[in-house]
Amino acid sequence: MRRAHARRTATTIREVSDIVVTTDERPEGRQRSAEEERLLAQRRRDTRNKWLWRIAGYVVVLLIWEYGFQAIMELIAGRSLNDALLPGPIRILQTIPDIWEDGEMLSNFGATLTRIGIGFGVSFIAGALIGLFTQNKWLDSFFRDLVVVSLTSPGLVWALTGLIIWGFKPLGWIFAIFMTTFALVSVNISEGVRALPKDLLDMAKAFGVSSIDRQRHIVIPHLAPYIFTAVRFGFSIAWKVTVLTEVFSSNKGIGFQMRVTSQVFQLDEFFTWVLSFFVFALFLEKVVLQRAEDRYFRWRQEVAT
């Protein structure tokens, strides 16, 4: 018989004397074991590392953007470029107060947001209704191809089609937003309704819970995540297509400003508009939607951890 140490013993074993195994069971008074100390140190190291690398990411990208952008782009383009085309982060930041003081910021933002609000509002209601309709097999077949077409085709074609039919009247951009976002809403709502927890609803009926309470405590909490997903995705697409319609024909709005500023080679202002919308989207995401979700989904464990 050959005697051999399993290969893992060499790597995993430490001296027993390393370890302080305490017998004190009180959680507060208990001394931390060596294993706990090791784990804690590891966690602290991980958190510190994560932040260091994150900051490094910002520093490196911003430095390259500020000082190496021109050189890199000229290398790629193979010709020298006017530096008005390649504004660095510092210059972009400097233009923010100018636009703000003009009062341009609020009025353009307002115009675009109103359009998104109206357009997406209409699409959401219509999409949700279609999602409910598609519980019926016949209506599901009726809408199926329209949904697939809406999901697969580029927003550009709907923007241009809407514009050429109605011009830049509300119906034009509502059509574009509707055609790009309703399918997303209807698919999500339809999935949600299909997955309604029948067992819980039966349970509630067995206990004689009223219909209103059943909606409030079962149906709506169940549908909420599907609605959040639909809003989140729908909004991001709606804003892109709205800006696109504004580029073609409008006299106000972020898309319009992007077109004007890029036509006169004021790319610093151009990027300021992009940046400002980013800040807004970030606010909407992290503050509004995230808060609402946190409040609504406290019962979900994966959100808590």
């Binding site: 923007a159 989140r232 909004f235 991001s236 697409i237 804003w239 892109k240 297509v241 696109l244 995401e285």
Partner: peptide
Amino acid sequence: VEGALEVEQFTGGESDG
């Protein structure tokens, strides 16, 4: 992918329009 994007919790969706 939808799961992946949900994790990101940013203005996800498609790069459209």
